[in-house]
Design a protein around this nucleic acid. Structure first.
Lengths: 633, 633
DNA sequence: CTGTAGGCGTTAAGCCGACAA
DNA sequence: TTGTCGGCTTAACGCCTACAG
C-alpha cells in the first residue's frame, strides 16, 4: 500500500465512505487525538513505550489521499499532518471545508444485499429507482428489455452486468456477471453496493462491507486480513500499532506525521476540524444537557439525528489521557434502540438542543485556598459551587407536549454549585459544526483550563453507573431513586417553535430539588442533585447580557423550522452582504434565499428585522438570528 | 504476519524450502549483506536515504523463525541478527551447523504438477514411488484399492485426498479432495507439491510455487500479493522496502535487526555462514579459475553441480557498494543451458576444482609510491605486477582428454603481474562450505584489504563484455581476438583421476602469452593477457611450501572419486580419532568409513598412509588428504 | 509408468416466473 | 415494489478408461 497509492475518484470514494465522512481538506487545521487514533487502530496501546504526548494536538493538514484497500476495496484516507503552534495559524481555509461539505453529490444509490442478492442464483434485484435514475434507459418496447452495464469499481476495474427487466410483476434484475462480482468481492448479505453515475454518465460500483460491531465496532477489514490464512487479524493490528506508534512519536516531537483513517470503521474521526473542537470546548458541558447527534441510518441512505442527554462528563481514560476531551461525555439516548452501545461521545459531535434551560458554570477565578482532593491535587479550585437553579416545564409529563424531560443526577461532590450565574466569560452555548472564524483566544492552551474545571466539576460524579443502568430501562417510564419518571422522546420541531420563540408563553418553572426529601450526606459535603430540565423556551429569559464581555458579536443563528443553532461571530463579518454569504454557506442555502428575511433578537429577546440599522449597530445588538426561509414566509 | 508467527514443523519447512536452503542456526555467526538483502526484496534502493553501511556486517544470529506466508504458503525464515565486533566472537556453534546440514531428512517427495494435475478433471497422478514409499499400504486384493489420506499443510490445515489405484494400466490417483486443494491453493501447472511422512507416519503436504524467472528471478510471492487487487506488487515491495530500510538502518548503528528470507525466491542467501565467507575470501579469486557450484535441479529433486570459469572479479555495484564481495565474480558456465542467466556469483558459493593450475597473487606489501589511478586513489599500490605464468595442457584441444580449457583475457592495467609466486601469506586455495573452525586472524577487517587488492587487480578488466558475448557463443568452438578456441565442456571425474593424482603424467606447460605477437599498447601500459589454463594435475607441483607460514596445519581434503577439496585445519584437531570425526562430518560419511584409509601427501607430494606417525608430526607434514572409501579400496 | 484426451454421470451455477410480503 | 422459493436448463466439475509416449 505504499507506492501504488493511486488517488481514486473522489466522488466514488465519498459515495462508499458515506455522507458522514468528513475528511479535512488540505491546508485546514485539525485537532489530532492520539487516543482516538489508537481506538481506530484497534490496538492495545503499550503505554510503557508510548512517548508523552498531549491528548490533543493542533495540526495543519498538509496532504490528503483518498485510497481504497487493495483486497477489500474498503475506502480510507491517508493524511499528512503537521503539528502547529497556536500562533502559527494563518486563516483556516474555510472555503475548503465549505466546498467539501457542500460538494455536489453525484447521484449515487446504495442497496444492502439480501441473501438472495448474495447467496445463490447469481441474481440481483435492482431497486427500481436505481435502475430508472442511474442506468441508461431500457427499450421497454422490447419483450424483455435488456442491456449490459459496464461499471468500474474503486480500483478502476471494470465489471459487466447484464441488466434485464422481466418477470411478472416486471422487475429489474442483474443476471450474468453479478455472481462473479459477488464472488470476487466476497460479498455477503448485509454488505452494500453503491452505484454511482458520474458527470459524464459513466457508472461506477462501490461496496460497503457490513459492519458487524455496528457503530463503534471494529472495521470489517478484519474480515479481510484473515482470508486464506488463518490468524491474520493480529498481523494487521501489528502494522497498525507500528504506524500508530510512529505517528504519535513524531507528533510528540512536533514533526509531521501520517495517519490513516477508515471512515467506515465505526470509530469516530480522530482528526477533527479545529474550529469544531474549539467551539465545542467553549461550552460548559454538564450533565443534563440535551443534545442531538447525527448518525447514519442503518442502510446508510441518509443521516438521522438522535436525541440524548449528557449523563456525565469524565475523561475516558484518566490514567493515560487525563483531561482529554476525547469522548468525555457519557450520554443516554432517548431511543434506546438506536446507538445502544454508544455510551460516550465527544463534545464536537453534538448539537445542543436549544429548547432547554441553561446551566451556567461560574467564571474561572484564581484559587484562594487549596481544595482537598487527594487524587487530583492539580486542580486548585475551591469555588463555592451551589445548586444550579432547575426548571421543569409543568406539562413535561404530558404525552404530546412540546417539552422533553430528562433527569439528573446526584453529584457526590465536595463542592457546591454557585447560584451566581452571571458574568460567565465565554458564551454559554457555542454550537459545534459551524463554519466559523477561529477566535484565537480559545486555542488548545486556552480551553484546557476550562475543560479541567469541567472535569473537576464532574469527574467525581459517581452516578454514571446508575445512569447507564437507567439507559437500559425501557420507555416510557422508569424508576430512579424510588421515583417514577416518564420520558417523552418526541421533540416538537416546527415553525411555531422557532418563529414564536419570543412570543410563546414562557415555560413554568418547577423546583424539583429533592434535597429537602433526602438528607444530604454532609460528611462528604455531598450534594444530592436531581433535576428535571424542561425544554421550554427559556433561552430568551436567561440570555446572558454579555455586552461587556470580550466576545461581543458572538451570536446564535437558527434556521427557520429547526431548533438547532449555530454559532456565529458577527464581528468577523463587515456587512449584511457578507453575513448573508456566511449564513448561506453555514446552512447550505442559496444566497438568494438569504434575502428573504433574517430576523434577530437582542439580549432582551426583542425581535427585529435586519437591515433597518447600520451593520455595526446590528452586530452589537443581535444575539440570536432566525432565518425565515422564502418558502415559509 | 507479526504476532501470529507460529513456528512451523521444521521438517516440512525444509522439505518445501528444498535441500539447498541453509538457514543459519541460532547463535551462529553470519555475514549479512545489505546488498543481497536489497536484491532479495526486489526493491530499488533509494540510496539517497540509505544510511552509510559497510557491504558486509558480521552478526550473530539471535533467533530464527521458520514461517510460511499465510496466503501463499511460501516458506520463509525470519532471523534476528545482532551485529558483533570481530573480538566479540566466542566460538561459532559449529555443531549446530553440522546438525543443521546433516539433519535427518524425513522422507519427502515432490512432484511438479502437470497440466492434467492442475487444470481440469480434478485428478492427480500420484507417482508410483510416492504412493508406495510414503502412503500407507493399499489393499491390493481389492478390485479398486482405495484409501483416504489426510495430510496437513504447512499452516496446519488438514486436507483429505481420496487415493485410488485403478485404470489400465493400473495407476495411483488422487480424486476427491484434490481439486479443492488445487483451487484453494491456487496451484497451476509447474508448481510442485511436496509430500512428507513424519516420524510418526503422519503425512504432510507442502507446495512450492513455480519460479517464473528461474534462478535469480523474482519470488513468486508477487503472484500472491496481487490477488483481488490490481497492482499489489508495489505494495508488497513497499513494505519490503520499509523493512529493508529499517534493517539496514539498525545494522548501520550496530543495533539488532530483523530480516526475512524466502529460500525459494531464487536470490542467493544474504546471511551467510561467517566461516564460509571468511574461507572464500582467503582465496585470491582470479579470472580463469575453475569452480563448481551447487544448484537445485529444475524439478528440485536433487542437487546438481555446474562447472564454470571465473571471467572477472569486480564489485557488482561499485558506485554504491565499493569493495563488496557480493556476487563479485563474473562467471561463465561450461553448459550454457543451465544457469544461463547467472552471470555473477559470490565466492562462497563456489568450490574450486582442484585439477587446475595455480595463479598466485603476490603478497600485499606497503606502498612505496602512489599509483596514479584517478578514480581509485584509495588503493595506493604500485607493485610491479608481471604476467603470471601460464600453463596449457597440450592435449587440451582433443575431444576427450581429461582437460578443460578456458581462456583469458586482456587486462588493461597500469600494473604488471609479478612472476614471483612464492611467499603468499595465506593459503592460496581455501575452499568454502567446509565445517571448519574459524581462524580468528581473518575476520572482516582482515580480508577487506585482500579483497581490495583483488579488486584493484581486476576491476580495471574491461574484457568482461567480450567474455559475456563469448558465453553466448555455442560450443564447440568460438573465435576470440581472431583466434579459434575450442572448448571441451566435459570434465572427467573418476577414480583414475583422483586416485592417480600423484602419479599421473604431469601436464605439459605451454606458454601462450600473446604479447609477442601483438604490440602492447604502451600508452596505457596495457597488458594484453590471454591465457589458456590447463586442468592437469598440477596441484602437487605448485603446492606452496608454507611450513614457515602462520597457518600451518591448513590442509586440503579430497574425497576419493571427487576432485573437489575442502579446507581443513589440522591444528584444530588433536588426534586421528578427532580427525576422522571431522572428516566424517565434512563429507557426510559414517565414521566407520573413515577407518578404511586416509592417505596424505606432504608438501613435496609424497604420499603416505595415516597412523604411522604421531598425530603432531602428521599434522605438520600433511598438506593434502585423500579419503579412500571402503567400497573403492 | 504416467501424461493427455475424451466419454459420461453428477453437481451446482444460474436464469426464470410464481407468489407473497 | 422486491425478497424468496422452487423449477428448469446448462455448463462445469470430476471420475473414469483408452491410448500413447
Amino acid at each position: 500500500m505504499n507506492e501504488a497509492e493511486k488517488v481514486l475518484d473522489f466522488n466514488l470514494w465519498q459515495a462508499c465512505a458515506g455522507s458522514m465522512a468528513r475528511i479535512p481538506p488540505v491546508n485546514s487545521k485539525v485537532f489530532y487525538f492520539p487516543q482516538g487514533h489508537a481506538e481506530h487502530t484497534l490496538i492495545d496501546v503499550d503505554y510503557g513505550v508510548l512517548p508523552k504526548v498531549p491528548p490533543v494536538i493542533l495540526c495543519r493538514v498538509s496532504s490528503v489521499k483518498f485510497l481504497a484497500h487493495l483486497q477489500s476495496d474498503e475506502v480510507y484516507a491517508k493524511m499528512k499532518l503537521v503539528p502547529i503552534r497556536d500562533e502559527d495559524d494563518g486563516d483556516d481555509d474555510l472555503e475548503a471545508w465549505e466546498t467539501n461539505d457542500s460538494s455536489p453529490r453525484f447521484s449515487s444509490l446504495a442497496k444492502i444485499l439480501t441473501q438472495s442478492d448474495s447467496n445463490n442464483g447469481g441474481g440481483f434485484s435492482v431497486p427500481r429507482y436505481c435502475a430508472e435514475t442511474l442506468f441508461p434507459p431500457l427499450d421497454y418496447a422490447s419483450d424483455t428489455p435488456l442491456q449490459t452495464l459496464a461499471m468500474k469499481d474503486i480500483q478502476g476495474k471494470t465489471w459487466n452486468f447484464k441488466h434485464i427487466f422481466r418477470g411478472s410483476p416486471k422487475r429489474h434484475l442483474f443476471t450474468t456477471g453479478w455472481s462473479v462480482f459477488v464472488n470476487k468481492k466476497q460479498l455477503i448479505g448485509g454488505d452494500s453496493v453503491v452505484f454511482m453515475k458520474g458527470e459524464n454518465g459513466d457508472l461506477s460500483v462501490g461496496i460497503r462491507r457490513y459492519q458487524r460491531g455496528g457503530f463503534g465496532g471494529p472495521p470489517s477489514l478484519s474480515r479481510w486480513k484473515s482470508t486464506a490464512g488463518k490468524e491474520g487479524d493480529k498481523s494487521s493490528s501489528g502494522d497498525s500499532a507500528d504506524s500508530f506508534m510512529e505517528a504519535v512519536s513524531l507528533a510528540a516531537k512536533g514533526k509531521p506525521f501520517e495517519v490513516v483513517y477508515y471512515p467506515r470503521s465505526g470509530t469516530p474521526e480522530f482528526c477533527v476540524k479545529a474550529s469544531s473542537v474549539s467551539d465545542a470546548m467553549r461550552i460548559a458541558w454538564h450533565p443534563g444537557m440535551r443534545f442531538r447527534m447525527a448518525f447514519e441510518t442503518e442502510d446508510s441512505s441518509r443521516i438521522s439525528w438522535s436525541i440524548g442527554t449528557i449523563a456525565a462528563v469524565q475523561a475516558t481514560d484518566p490514567a493515560h489521557w487525563p483531561d482529554s476531551p476525547w469522548q468525555c461525555l457519557q450520554v443516554t439516548w432517548d431511543e434506546p434502540d438506536q446507538l445502544q452501545n454508544v455510551k460516550r461521545v465527544s463534545p464536537w459531535l453534538l448539537d445542543l438542543v436549544s429548547n432547554m434551560p441553561i446551566i451556567q458554570i461560574p467564571q474561572f477565578s484564581p484559587p484562594r485556598k487549596k481544595l482537598k482532593l487527594s487524587h487530583h491535587p492539580q486542580f486548585p479550585l475551591d469555588d463555592q459551587f451551589q445548586m444550579p437553579f432547575v426548571q421543569v416545564n409543568n406539562n413535561s409529563f404530558g404525552p404530546n407536549g412540546p417539552l422533553t424531560c430528562c433527569l439528573y443526577d446526584n453529584i457526590p461532590l465536595g463542592i457546591q454549585i454557585p447560584s451566581s450565574i452571571q458574568g460567565a466569560r465565554h458564551p454559554l452555548f457555542e454550537l459545534p459544526f459551524s463554519g466559523l472564524h477561529l477566535t484565537n483566544d480559545l486555542q488548545f492552551r486556552g480551553f484546557q483550563p476550562i475543560f479541567q474545571r469541567l472535569d473537576l466539576d464532574l469527574r467525581l460524579d459517581n452516578s454514571s453507573k446508575e445512569l447507564e443502568k437507567m439507559a437500559d430501562i425501557k420507555k416510557p417510564s422508569f424508576k430512579l431513586f424510588g421515583q417514577q419518571i416518564y420520558i417523552e422522546p418526541e421533540i416538537q420541531t416546527g415553525q411555531e417553535n422557532s418563529q414564536g420563540c419570543s412570543s410563546d408563553a414562557l415555560s413554568d418553572v418547577v423546583q424539583t430539588d429533592k434535597s429537602d426529601g433526602n438528607p444530604v450526606e454532609t460528611e462528604k459535603i455531598e450534594v444530592n442533585q436531581r433535576s428535571i430540565f424542561s425544554s421550554g423556551n427559556v433561552w430568551n429569559l436567561n440570555f446572558p447580557p454579555d455586552e461587556h464581555g470580550d466576545d461581543t458579536g458572538h451570536c446564535q443563528a437558527f434556521l427557520d423550522s429547526d431548533n438547532v443553532g449555530k454559532t456565529l461571530d458577527l464581528s468577523a463579518t463587515r456587512s449584511y452582504e457578507e453575513l448573508h454569504q456566511r449564513l448561506a454557506a453555514m446552512f447550505g442555502l442559496e444566497r438568494s434565499e438569504m434575502l428573504s428575511r433574517v430576523l434577530y433578537q437582542d439580549a432582551m429577546g426583542i425581535m427585529s428585522e435586519t437591515g433597518n440599522e447600520p451593520y455595526s449597530e446590528f452586530m452589537k445588538t443581535a444575539k440570536r438570528l432566525t432565518l425565515i426561509l422564502a418558502s415559509s414566509s
